[in-house]
């Protein structure tokens, strides 16, 4: 790709990921599910691995688990998510790692602040997306969120990264 194509792609990807971030902060989870390819995997690892299925993660969600997780958030029977913490997140430092046909791999940094019980907590993460271009937009093939202290002592989360 020439520089103009690369800049265009970066801008399109950035717009998509910012809209995903807004959807997650607004907890519009049905809209979030629509961003996914059915075979997509949403993973929060504890440690680096070649095959996350072979190790323990914070979450390793296929389509069924993603839907179960969202249902749990929405049904109102989970005390930790009724109400959940409110969040504000920013994604930046986008780098396109690879482009192969319709597939784009992009990495970025994320800061998220949560607020509950009048207490704020700050989380930072490296995020790597594998996206499939649909022409006008993208779908998520894989999203790997590696919290800075993923192998340390965390708190429980009532929202998604």
């Amino acid at each position: 790709m020439n520089k103009t194509d690369t800049d265009n792609l970066l801008w399109q990807v950035t717009q998509f990921l910012w809209s995903e971030a807004a959807i997650l902060d607004a907890k519009e989870y049905d809209a979030w599910l629509d961003l996914w390819q059915p075979e997509g995997l949403y993973i929060l690892p504890i440690e680096d691995a070649d095959d996350y299925a072979a190790v323990l993660n914070l979450c390793y969600d296929d389509d069924k688990m993603r839907r179960n997780r969202i249902k749990r958030f929405q049904d109102g029977f989970s005390i930790s998510s009724a109400p959940p913490a409110i969040t504000v997140r920013t994604l930046s430092r986008f780098v396109i790692d690879a482009v192969d046909g319709n597939t784009v791999v992009v990495s970025c940094g994320q800061h998220l602040v949560e607020d509950k019980f009048g207490r704020q907590r700050l989380w930072a993460a490296n995020v790597r997306y594998t996206l499939t271009s649909t022409g006008s937009s993208f779908q998520i093939q894989e999203k790997v969120v590696r919290l800075l202290n993923s192998d340390g002592v965390l708190n429980s989360f009532s929202y998604l990264f």
Binding site: L44, A53, A54, V55, L56, N57, L58, C59, Y60, M65, N68, R69, R72, S78, I79, S80, S81, L154, N155, S156, F157, S158
Partner: peptide, 21 residues
């Protein structure tokens, strides 16, 4: 591993509700 992730830990379907109470 998948069963453990389902209930336990910061993003499990069980532990966060325990932690809340």
């Amino acid at each position: 591993l998948r069963l453990h992730e389902h209930f336990q830990g910061p993003m499990g379907f069980g532990s966060p509700d325990d932690a809340e109470v």
